[in-house]
Simulated scan of single mutants.
Amino acid sequence: MTKTRQELDSGYENGAFILDAQSYADAWEAASAEFRAAHDGEYDVSYGGHARAKFDLIRPEGTPKGLFVFVHGGYWLQRHKDDWTCYGEGALSAGWAIAHPGYPLAPEVRISEITAHIAQAVTALAARVEGPIVLAGHSAGGHLVARMAMAGVLPDAVAARLSHVLSISPVSDLRPLLELTMNDTLRLDAAEAAAESPALGKPLGVPVTVVVGGSERPAFLDQARWLAEAWGAEQIILPGRHHFDVIDGLRDAQSPMMQAALG
């Protein structure tokens, strides 16, 4: 039986299925503001011509072990880099420099243009911090960091420094989004959806870990599995975690996802 658009939309709706969902967003913002206030850093550094094309960079004491970049989600439609600073806590405590790039959102830009912005941000950050580069991203950010692990996206010299990609609750195949109401804003067509789908492409050979919460929506369990299977990547399923708390392990250097990412 053919699903209605409302039923299709429901498959990719997270907040409506999480108790007191807004409290999670409020907590992200508050904790991140506190984290920035407690740490000196380079904030709102421009890497491109757009007002949102800015990144934050915080260095540990001493020489960084490398660079840890977190790319936020929000279905390429919403959220801001400032909402997520605290999720660099685990990497910073482990001696890594941490960065949070912002990027322009749909409908002003298409997803392929957002991919290009993240590549530009990672390249600019790589010029500021030596050593290995770990990329982590959540939801749409999980899609974007996976795209960085594909040929022809990052400059060769930067791609060669990637030591791990941590794709958390990613959207790895964009084709199902073509039928969703959000695509009225994303403006994906079939060609872009296929080209921007990591699960349909080939990785560079960089180690990749796909993380998903065991209590996430079935669509996200599928999306994570599709990427892990297509790329032969390690998959971590966190029991009891949903789409809004699956990222909590980023704040703990000893969590399974951080142990996988930082080695």
Rank of each mutant, 00 (worst) to 15 (best):
L186V: 10
F244G: 10
E229T: 08
F244L: 15
V165E: 00
G214N: 10
R187D: 09
S169C: 12
V206P: 01
R225W: 01
E196H: 03
E196T: 04
D245G: 06
D248I: 04
L178R: 02
A194S: 15
G249C: 10
G249W: 06
V153M: 08
F220Y: 14
G213V: 06
A233W: 01
Q259Y: 02
P239E: 09
R251G: 10
R241C: 14
L204M: 12
F220S: 07
A157V: 14
A157K: 07
Q254A: 15
D248H: 06
D248T: 12
E229M: 08
S255V: 03
Q235P: 09
H242D: 14
L174D: 04
V158S: 13
L221D: 07
V153L: 05
V208D: 02
D222E: 13
R217N: 09
T209Y: 02
L174F: 03
A149K: 05
H243R: 02
E216H: 07
V165R: 05
P170M: 05
V206W: 01
L200G: 04
D173R: 00
E216I: 07
R251C: 15
T181Q: 09
V211C: 10
A230F: 07
L221F: 03
M182N: 06
G205M: 12
L177R: 08
L177A: 14
G201S: 14
G213F: 00
A253D: 11
D156Q: 07
V158G: 04
A190Q: 13
S197E: 10
S255F: 02
A193W: 00
A157Y: 02
P256H: 00
A261Y: 05
G205W: 02
A151S: 11
Q235V: 13
Q223V: 06
I168S: 08
G249D: 00
L227R: 03
E229L: 09
Q254Y: 07
A149C: 06
A149L: 04
A230H: 01
L204S: 11
A260R: 11
V206E: 04
G232P: 08
Q259L: 14
V158Y: 04
L174M: 15
H164M: 06
D222Y: 02
M182F: 09
L227K: 03
L188Q: 08
A160G: 08
